[in-house]
């Protein structure tokens, strides 16, 4: 049996009146790339925030290295966050600092390393993502793909055990997408970090993911290795994988029959 770095056990979560997760469980194996997929609006980002302890589930438990995250107090939570990192959809680079300072930020905040050691580390991280030449640029000067790579360099600055990618491929051109896919794979293999990739880009992620979860309708509708998922006989999974407009996830948002509404309005 593989060891799980993160275990999500029977959680229920709702935001306001709206139920987002209904009693779902997900296990994230250590050192592997796990993909969480699903249609937009299903609350995939919410899942990452639950793991990061920014949100607390209504019911159920989430453990990180065997410790319950919702039960942690503030300082334990902050201590544990040092070994996770998250790549936000927008990159979330600090706009008032250069790329170099962005990557150095966590090192300066959490370590007492000398400035010359930090410089070496930062340049190495930037080299990994291929942006050593852009060290002195401001985030506003970077293209979308470069910003995401810079954010990735920042995310790995403290050598985390867990990296969570929030929609890393959204809105990227094919070249940047290829670069990111390669980087996620390479980082996972070289540093043996555990990765969680939240995405709806099916093809890219099925190539690199070791294990896949598909969420829809507040539930896990399918999980398994990439091959198992592709061979799944669930209509819902197949609709998602093949991108069919109509199916178990309906094209129409629930409404009254159109005849009734139009004719009813005329009367």
């Amino acid at each position: 049996m593989t060891e799980h770095l993160v275990e999500i056990q029977n959680i229920t979560f709702s935001r306001g009146e709206r139920l987002i997760y209904d009693d779902i469980s997900i296990n994230i194996p250590k050192g592997k790339i796990t993909a969480i997929m699903g249609p937009s609006g299903i609350g995939k980002t919410t899942m990452l925030r639950l793991i990061g302890g920014q949100l607390v589930p209504d019911k159920g438990d989430i453990t990180f290295k065997g410790n319950s995250i919702p039960a942690m107090n503030r300082s334990t939570l902050y201590h544990n966050r040092k070994s996770m990192s998250m790549l936000f959809q927008s990159g979330a680079l600090f706009t008032d600092m250069t790329v170099y300072d962005n990557v150095a930020f966590a090192l300066r905040e959490h370590t007492h390393l000398s400035e010359s050691v930090i410089e070496t580390l930062v340049l190495l991280k930037l080299e990994t993502v291929g942006l050593r030449g852009a060290a002195q640029m401001m985030p506003s000067e970077l293209s979308g793909g470069m910003a995401r790579r810079a954010a990735l360099a920042r995310a790995i600055a403290l050598d985390p055990e867990l990296i969570m990618y929030d929609e890393p491929f959204a809105g990227q051109d094919p070249i940047s997408m290829g670069v990111l896919v390669k980087l996620i794979k390479a980082l996972s293999e070289a540093l043996s970090v555990t990765s969680i990739v939240v995405t709806h880009d099916v093809n890219e992620v099925l190539n690199i993911a070791d294990y896949v979860y598909i969420l829809a309708n507040k539930k896990v509708i399918g999980h398994g290795t990439a091959a198992q998922i592709k061979a799944s006989d669930s209509a819902l999974v197949q609709q998602f994988l093949q991108g069919q407009a109509d199916g178990p996830v309906p094209f129409h948002y629930p409404a009254d029959a159109i005849q009734a509404q139009i004719l009813g309005a005329k009367q």
């Binding site: 966050r81 990192s85 927008s90």
Partner: peptide, 13 residues
Amino acid sequence: TEQLSSLEMMAVD
């Protein structure tokens, strides 16, 4: 732009 969330996830309050 998620900079505040990002700080939180970097264990900086």
